[in-house]
Design a binder for these strands. Structure first.
Length: 268
DNA sequence: GCGCAGGTAATCT
DNA sequence: AGATTACCTGCG
């Protein structure tokens, strides 16, 4: 058990921020599953959490997964005081951190996300894990590797309620499994080239590529525009968000905006 | 029972 | 380039 005293980290806010689909509330706290590992977490106070994992796993994986080295307070204090919406939104979601999620899982998850509600996305992802992921613990399955998913038939993938996205999923899994698109290698590229490489996948457009760039590759400059963000910009920024004010960390602002708008059912 | 959901690609003008 | 439309299916 690891106890951390840290500001700007709220498990509820992260779970509801829309960046992750297997980071969910449990009886006692929160649980996330990533890279074949399970992490149980508990919010002990606004400024402290406990993690149920070994020191090795913490240092070797979860520390970076939870993005604990990034100073979010500095991003929040960089918000100009005349941007009253963002000031408010950042206070509201000040515990959000942008996770470093497994690349392949992030890619497939956001391909699934198109025109689906968040609960429906989660249902499909769990079905895929159960269908072909390793069983990590009793009834708990890892997200499949590219090879595992690529070896599934179209019918099997269709059975996970993904509809017309099935061919996108299979095509992406095959491309990665065959080494045609080496996801890990893309880490070396700059933001623009990561974006272009992701757009090569069939079924990946601007929105999904930006989500993978932000939530997988941790490129904080990426600014995914989904319906919540578009509505918010239309309603509160006159249709144009001042991206230049947030150069290099607009993705963090996107998260504050999304969480604030969706939690308060703004826009629509 | 029924519209819609964290979009994308194809097919128009 | 910009606008329009079909698309699977579970959730509310």
């Amino acid at each position: 058990m690891i106890k951390l005293n840290i500001a700007n980290l709220n498990l509820f806010q992260i779970a509801e921020s829309g960046q992750c689909f297997r980071f969910n509330q449990t009886e006692h706290g929160y649980r996330t599953i990533a890279e074949g590992k399970i992490l149980d977490m508990c919010q002990e106070s606004p400024d402290s959490i406990t993690l149920n994992c070994s020191k090795e796993d913490y240092k070797g994986y979860w520390h970076d997964y939870l993005d604990l080295s990034t100073d979010y307070a500095s991003y929040i204090s960089a918000i100009p005081s005349n941007d009253s919406f963002m000031t408010e939104a950042a206070i509201y979601g000040s515990g959000i951190r942008i996770l470093r999620q497994p690349l392949f899982e992030t890619l497939i998850s956001f391909i699934i996300s198109q025109r689906k509600s968040i609960p429906a996305i989660k249902t499909s992802i769990e079905a895929i894990c159960r269908m072909c992921g390793n069983e990590i613990d009793e009834g708990i399955y890892a997200f499949p590797t590219p090879e595992q998913l690529a070896s599934c038939s179209m019918e099997e993938i269709l059975s996970c309620s993904v509809g017309y996205r099935a061919r996108y999923i299979l095509s992406a899994a095959r491309s990665v499994a065959q080494g045609k698109t080496p996801l890990e290698e893309l880490h070396k590229l700059d933001d623009d080239d990561v974006f272009k490489a992701l757009l090569e996948f069939d079924g990946v457009g601007v929105k999904v590529a930006n989500c993978v760039r932000l939530f997988g590759y941790h490129r904080l400059a990426a600014f995914p525009e989904d319906v919540w963000i578009i509505n918010t910009i239309n309603n509160y920024y006159g249709g144009k968000f001042p991206l230049d004010l947030y150069e290099g960390f607009a993705g963090v602002m996107q998260q504050y905006m999304f969480f604030y708008a969706r939690s308060n059912k703004l826009g629509k």
